[in-house]
Design a protein around this nucleic acid. Structure first.
Lengths: 215, 215
DNA sequence: GACAACATACCAACCGGTCGGTATGTTCAT
DNA sequence: ATGAACATACCGACCGGTTGGTATGTTGTC
């Protein structure tokens, strides 16, 4: 009673509900009523916290950035000394995340931006920020890995970081199309192989790892 | 003799309208009324040709397969003698297609499957068929390229063919998120580089041929 | 008693889908 | 060759449910 209990408030419950419902049904097909029902709150609570559905969309994208940001920040792949191992560890971590049903491991902002990129600029921007912000966490390690090896590649660390996101997002689409994660896992294997090759046979004057395989 | 009407019928006009409207707004956000208005037909015509919205979704995916199938079948990259050149030519062709506004070059079935994979199994299946069918047109060339070089890779032609689709679909998502095609083009460059490296063309050394790095 | 955090009741617009109807063939026995 | 019987393509008013959104409480806390 004197202590305000740490109960989850309606806003958080709505955002949490948005994560699961929108990932399963898409943004447009998710109604406000449905969101309220899933969150166990009423419509009044919804419009108390959000001006409208689109504002919830933006908030959900931001919330997603927060959640996934924490997940990846605390992931063990950062412990590697070699920045390249951190990058490869990231890809392995992404692959390990492919568990459970398709809606459980796919990306909220990747789903949302497809539906809203032309019709809801605010949501598009929030999704862009989420994806590019996440890619940016890889960029430093990629950059460090090239510098450590005195490479002068004809690609930028930024473009490779974004490419990993493209592969991952595309893998999710294939998973949704086939109804399973297997193809997505295969694609991430190809991504891992690509990165390994980039840092072994530099395009240009770079050279690396004269002895055998890493495993 | 009595020729069947040479005018475009309502069904085709509706499918054509679906391609552009759905790619811009998504499937769920596209209403039947809107589709009819864009096609210049009435609602009666719509429900004469399609049992419901979902049946149009399936027909649109099939129509998309038909249209893109013809586009790629007639594309010039098939003329290369070396199957690897055909694969690389395909990637270059996909990159060259990144012109105009984002809704103009993105993929209908990739967009639709994200919204419907859980709620409309028939559409999901049609989209899966469209993507895997398109990937299959690459598989033979990839297979031939490996055989021609006596390679025994630890990846399959099928998985690489599907990986190209993952990269392309993911590139579209990034294009939608950023509002431009530049990042998508960069990602396709990475894909081209990956395939080149897999087959050790360009600056790479073809040291692996009988090197025994396969399983 | 002011204010935030919710709940309840309600609305107008819009949604997918239905339905009775028309215009234009096509078929085929007469 | 005609005309009844039937089929196809399309029209647009209409229906009931759902939508995002609003207006107005109620409740607990400072």
């Amino acid at each position: 009673m004197p202590q305000p209990a740490p109960k989850t408030d309606a806003r958080t419950k709505l955002l949490e509900a948005a994560l699961s419902v929108v990932r399963a049904k898409g943004y447009s097909a998710t109604s406000v009523d449905e969101l309220c029902a899933a969150a166990g709150v009423t419509k009044g609570a919804f419009f108390h916290h959000f001006k409208g559905k689109n504002e919830l969309g933006v908030a959900a994208a931001d919330y997603w950035s927060e959640m996934t940001g924490a997940l990846f920040a605390n992931a063990p792949y950062h412990d590697h000394a070699d920045p390249l191992d951190r990058v490869l560890g990231y890809v392995a971590f992404r692959k390990a995340l492919l568990k459970g049903g398709v809606p459980d491991f796919t990306c909220l902002v990747g789903t949302m931006v497809q539906e809203t990129y032309e019709t809801a600029p605010a949501i598009r921007k929030a999704c862009e920020h989420s994806i590019t912000g996440h890619a940016a966490t890889l960029e430093a390690d990629i950059e460090a890995a090239t510098r450590e090896r005195n490479m002068a590649p004809d690609w930028t660390a930024k473009s490779l970081a974004l490419h990993t996101q493209a592969v991952i997002q595309g893998a999710f689409i294939l998973a949704k199309a086939t109804g399973g994660a297997e193809i997505a896992a295969d694609s991430m294997d190809h991504l891992r192989r690509y990165i390994e090759m980039l840092f072994r046979v530099g395009t240009g004057q770079a050279k690396h790892l004269t002895d055998g395989d890493s495993k």
